[in-house]
Simulated assay, not measured.
Amino acid sequence: MILVLGGTHETTEVCTLLNQLGLEHVLSVTTDFGAKLYGHLSTECLITRFEPDTLEAYITQNEIGLIIDATHPHASVVKAMASSVAHKMNLPYILYQRAVDLEIDLKMAMPTFESMAQAIAHVRSYSDEKTHILITGIKHIREWKAAFDVNQLYFRIMPSLESLKICLDEKIPAGNIVAIKAPCSIAFNQTLFKDFEIDYFVFKNSGAGSAFKQNIDSLEGTDVIPICIQPVVSKTSESCGDLNALKSKLESLKLF
């Protein structure tokens, strides 16, 4: 049995290929929203957040023979954990990752950062109590709250109950939450900039197929300062970025 760690649009590519090859697989996602988007593509869909011990146990109990990692480009902790567990258990591991251009060629000056902590420190050093910040995603909501007054922060999140609950549990004002599936249109983003009087727009370079291009294009003609978080891109013998390469790796493992 193959375990696919998914939740991104690469999930569709990977699961579709496995289905075409007649290879049974379990898809693991972290939210109900992910299951609704991709669950129908797999033999079985599992909603969980693996830790090393639970991943090891699942592999043993379900006779997993291969892990295909199609998690988000910025999910570095999950990728490292999955790779470590696979190596420990002498299990084949394939990292299927989208193309991400780290050399961003833009007409505007755009600071880029290797971590959200660096980005927060930068914005903090150039802001005051009147600064308004629009942040995509909720993973680092507590770090932003620790550095700024909550009324300065606006979050553009995925329209899932899980994401909304996290915002409300962290006492983000309801008027500072925008729940919509990305990518958003340029006009929509610019409306948020105007209505919320945004000074900084924080987003991630998540590569091809993500909201990255729309986020960049939304900045044109505005005074909003972009804050871009770069991913850690792995280039090893375990990684591949297209279906032909993935198929070749599966064939080398004699799975079909």
Rank of each mutant, 00 (worst) to 15 (best):
M89K: 12
C45A: 13
G241V: 06
N151I: 08
I67F: 02
N90Q: 13
P73D: 03
G22K: 10
Y126H: 15
S160Q: 07
A117T: 13
D128N: 13
Y126R: 15
V178F: 13
K79T: 14
L255A: 07
N189P: 01
W144N: 08
I227E: 00
S185H: 02
A119R: 08
Q190H: 10
D242Q: 09
M110Y: 06
E51H: 14
I133G: 00
I133M: 06
N189E: 07
L55M: 08
P183T: 05
N62S: 08
I68W: 00
P111N: 09
L27F: 07
M1H: 13
V85G: 04
H87P: 02
T54Y: 03
E13R: 15
V233P: 00
A174L: 14
G207L: 04
H40F: 12
K165G: 00
F201V: 02
Y96K: 10
H72L: 06
C184W: 02
E13C: 12
D149N: 15
Y96F: 11
F188S: 10
H40Y: 13
K36Q: 13
E129P: 11
S234G: 05
M158K: 08
F212I: 00
L134F: 01
E56V: 01
L17R: 03
F196D: 01
L243Y: 09
T60Q: 15
P183C: 00
S185W: 01
D32I: 15
A75R: 02
G22D: 04
H140W: 10
C167P: 08
D128A: 06
T12W: 10
S237D: 15
M108T: 11
A86E: 02
G39H: 06
F203T: 08
G39M: 07
Y154H: 14
V150Q: 10
S206V: 05
G39N: 02
A109Q: 15
A57P: 07
V123K: 02
V78H: 07
G209M: 01
A57H: 09
G6E: 00
G39R: 01
T11V: 04
W144D: 05
Q152D: 03
